[in-house]
Design a protein around this nucleic acid. Structure first.
Lengths: 359, 359
DNA sequence: TTGAAAGCGTTACCAT
DNA sequence: ATGGTAACGCTTTCAA
């Protein structure tokens, strides 16, 4: 309907449109540039001509000259973890609304994102978001040199010139520790995610700080690598011990689900009567009655908002400085861990806020 | 380290590299074009110069002239459904390995993908994949005119010039019907996904065909819109009836999980003693002991392979014709539905293959 | 308001 | 094997 040319022909260009509208090619450009100086009447004629030809401005040519691709590179891993699809979907929507789009790269989970980065940089993305991945400081330097802002999502980097958006990993870990201690547990376990990740380290540090503050021994420990199978294996290790923990802080919800499965169906344990389980993230399945998982929340929507906000500021702002944003969460209380005193109901949801820990 | 210029400067171009390597800009281009005619020695000198400058070929400029962006537009919805993150991750990896990348768009689930399409086409993607979405035939025509191959993933289109990759929706639905009938059930229920989707329609048609073939009445019916909450609501409707079904075919696993939750925790029903549940997709959580879901499989890895294969053929092949690929699945038998005779164990996994239904 | 012309950073096609 | 030059389709001066 909108095309008289066959499929072998090339898409219409601004020059084609200019010809049949009887204007210059520059005029066509202006017709598609909001706020450009053009007479309403000519603009109308051009738009009309464009429609007959099925013309759309070529974003590639535009990027070449404006030096802005309006594309954000996003490196993701762990898409099995329900947290990330949510992040991806929201982030894509927010950026879409701002005229940006996401070029998706997948990286191997436990490694730096370096290998795929070469390709990303070739696309001249306006910004780079690493979700649950990090990059070498060499590459971070390359990005800085190329003027490409980098943002780590759910990770922090030691001292690079990159921004980050995370949840309250350390506070969350500590609160979970306090919560389990208050619940009267005695033998604590911790299932780490990827050991080198700042997120896992921060959560563990907070958790251990709580133990230490109460003069309790260090928690037992296993590594789940943030994967379902890894966590299941970690659970088997922990739960096979004669002195098996009566409370386990699982490094994130995705692992907590696996651990809950293993505890109940392989070891025949009752949760929380035999073992209390607490996760981190508060993803969708945590709410499912099958799991009813107590978890420290990382509010995806807010985290994404802040990430988009910071990224846009880095891209469009004058001389922006990297920012580290921490998005506050809550200890969401459900049924997978024994419940101590001190819970309050917020909007119908039980949360744990011991005195003096208001977020 | 690799840059002496400040961050405000522009990234190095081939001309910059040419200058310090003492060659022409064309030579630089050849140095980065595999198989181009260039002396090994000059190439080395150029690569070296490129490294000192931190030069990377600009993919945007390249796309402009080659008319190939090496970008595939992917429109996704339903990222909460575990099926799609898996698809996304695998697809991204496969394309990455072939030098293509994915530009991600999110669309509203139940609607055509038309609104975002304008933006997609501006990026001059080499191909377009719609995962669980469709497009209007007008837009399909636009894509054909623009020479952009379109592939529907997990959907089919009536008669457009687009390719598709799906599972065995109709056969799966029929097999599930046969399976439940063989299991001795009497009152059947079906929870549809998005009613206008080919996938939901095909599954339902197969299911009803099985009922009809056995002279059984039509199944009760509710619509879950392929969402968790929608399916939960549908389950409440169905299970509240005095003649509540003793077997429900849930349009996909994502909905089956919701229905299982509602049946067990809200209605106190035992699965499968009080009600049998069968899903479709065989996603990860179907295997979890909490659900142990019987489900007709859609092998993600194979489906993605075929999708990538078809897409590459459409992009790179001579005069390719649209293809409709159906990837065979199996009825994976677990504990959520009463098990009739006729199950066989394949690689340690129970599947149902009544005589004469070998895939 | 409009048009002409100069790029943007490549690849492709000539010559050499 | 190499260099020069013309595109690619647009935005952005700069004059008119």
């Amino acid at each position: 309907m909108s095309q008289t040319r066959g499929s072998s022909n090339r898409p219409a260009t601004a020059t084609d449109v200019a010809r049949i509208a009887g204007v210059s090619q520059s005029a066509v450009s202006r017709a598609f540039t909001p706020g450009a100086s053009i007479a309403a009447e000519t603009k109308l004629r051009i738009i009309e001509a464009a429609r007959t030809l099925g013309y759309r401005p070529n974003a590639i040519a535009r990027s070449l000259i404006t030096r802005r691709s309006r594309v954000i590179g996003l490196v993701a891993a762990y898409l099995q973890n329900h947290f990330y699809p949510d992040v991806l979907e929201l982030m894509s929507r927010r950026f879409q609304a701002l005229g940006y789009h996401i070029l998706l790269f997948t990286a191997d989970a436990a490694a730096h994102a370096d290998p795929v980065m070469e390709e990303i940089l070739a696309y001249r993305v306006d910004g780079l978001i690493l979700a649950s991945t990090t990059l070498s400081s060499a590459l971070a330097a390359d990005c800085r040199a190329a003027g490409i802002p980098v943002l780590l999502f759910n990770r922090t980097a030691r001292a690079s010139q990159v921004s980050s958006v995370t949840g309250e990993n350390e506070r969350g870990g500590r609160l979970i520790g306090e919560f389990l201690i208050a619940g009267g547990h005695r033998r604590f376990g911790f299932v780490a995610g990827v050991e080198v990740s700042s997120t896992s380290q921060d959560r563990e540090r907070g958790f251990r700080a709580a133990m230490a503050a109460h003069g309790l021994p260090e928690p037992l420990r296993a590594v789940g690598h943030y994967t379902f199978d890894g966590a299941a294996a970690a659970a088997r290790t922990l739960l096979s011990r004669p002195d098996r923990p009566d409370a386990i802080f699982c490094g994130n919800d995705h692992m907590a689900l696996a651990i809950s499965e293993v505890a109940r169906f392989e070891f025949g344990l009752k949760v929380p009567q035999d073992v209390s389980l607490v996760g981190f993230d508060d993803v969708g399945p945590a709410r499912w009655a099958s799991f009813s998982l107590t978890s420290f929340s990382q509010p995806v929507s807010t985290m994404v908002d802040r990430a988009v906000e910071v990224m846009i500021e880095q891209i469009e702002g004058e001389a922006p400085v990297p920012r580290d944003v921490i998005v506050p969460g809550e200890l969401i209380v459900r049924g997978s861990a024994r419940v101590p005193a001190g819970c309050v109901s917020i909007n119908g949801q039980l949360v744990w806020r011991p005195e003096g820990s208001a977020p």
